[in-house]
């Protein structure tokens, strides 16, 4: 009997119990979930609802009494060219970063998953070190490394004759956004690499061994075993990475601050600028306006999260199908 069959047999018994009884039966589960639930309520759900609430007010954040203005902030945001520029930049960022990052991470994960590679743990750590390095520090250090004046990257390219003049990666409006993408890929490559490694390790070695007995080469094994079996995981990894790539505030601020002239301003920087960025000028911050922009952006991210939900369900079904097939194969 498979685990799925066992669960399905037990299911009617569970459903016959009341909700209170089921909670009582699983009280330890709920107790252990409580800290995480409280933190989620405080730092995720409350800010979401508070953002929507404040978006209905004209408020600088300084006064005790925000002034209610209805949906005026929303109608102002929707005609702001800078909002569309930032929105566009965020999605350009995502569409450039995600495919490159995931492809590179997959290649690295496949190589590191090879048991013949004795130094795999060391390489895995090396690729993961940037992930655990403080983002703001990475940003500042990268401005020196990629500086057009004596920056190592420019110096190497000049010495190799690849370029004739130094490149101002973060100062050239045509390059600034893509340079930030490059640093972001390097910084966060380790995360999808770990996801891919975890996914690869779910593929039974016996499948590869059977394929080798049948004379399959590396490419055939990759195309007909690895790719199909990774597909359910890929959906989740793509969506998690895509949503994560929209959160690049610290890097964007430290590398370019959204400039030059808004060329690399992504949505988070736009929201920060309208909420707090006016602090050095003689105009008041516009918390309500920034919240309205954040609500629009949040809704678009929510659409992606919904896709993620559907993707996860599809992946679960695929995995259940794979497990059933595996069980059947084992039984035979």
């Amino acid at each position: 009997m498979t685990v799925a069959q066992q669960i399905s047999i037990g299911a009617p018994i569970q459903h016959s119990r009341s909700l209170r009884q089921r909670i009582a039966d699983n009280r330890w589960v709920y107790l252990f979930m409580l800290p995480s639930l409280v933190l989620t309520l405080m730092f995720t759900l409350y800010p979401i609802f508070a953002s929507f609430y404040y978006s209905l007010f004209q408020w600088s954040g300084f006064t005790s009494a925000p002034h209610y203005i209805g949906t005026l902030n929303f109608s102002e945001v929707i005609v702001d060219k800078q909002f569309y520029n930032a929105f566009k930049n965020s999605f350009i960022f995502m569409f450039c970063s995600v495919p490159i990052k995931l492809s590179l991470a997959l290649v690295i994960a496949i190589v590191l998953n090879d048991r013949a590679l004795r130094l795999a743990p060391i390489f895995r750590t090396m690729f993961f070190v940037p992930v655990v390095t403080t983002t703001a520090i990475v940003g500042i250090v990268m401005t020196f490394i990629m500086s057009p004046f004596n920056g190592p990257i420019n110096m190497i390219m000049l010495d190799l004759g690849v370029i004739a003049r130094p490149i101002d990666f973060f100062g050239d409006p045509k390059l600034a956004l893509y340079s930030v993408v490059g640093v972001e890929i390097w910084k966060w490559l380790g995360i999808p690499m770990i996801y891919w490694l975890a996914a690869l390790q779910t593929i039974p070695a016996s499948l590869y061994e059977a394929a080798e007995v049948d004379g399959a080469n590396w490419w055939s094994k990759f195309a007909y075993i690895t790719v199909p079996l990774l597909k359910p995981f890929a959906v989740i990894i793509v969506l998690i990475t895509a949503v994560g790539t929209l959160n690049v505030f610290a890097l964007a601020m430290t590398l370019t601050g959204g400039g030059p002239y808004f060329a690399s301003e992504v949505m988070e920087v736009y929201i920060y600028r309208t909420a707090f960025g006016a602090a050095n000028s003689l105009t008041l911050p516009r918390i309500g306006y920034a919240c309205a922009a954040a609500v629009y952006f949040g809704l678009s991210v929510m659409v992606m999260a919904t896709l993620q939900l559907f993707g996860a369900r599809w992946a679960n079904k695929e995995r259940a199908g794979m497990s059933a097939a595996e069980t059947t194969a084992d039984g035979e």
Partner: peptide, 17 residues
């Protein structure tokens, strides 16, 4: 008063680049 965007500084930077 709301901040005028782009302001003088941002405009000059945009012209320079």
């Amino acid at each position: 008063l709301r901040p005028v965007t782009p302001n003088l500084a941002e405009t000059v930077q945009g012209i320079y680049t």
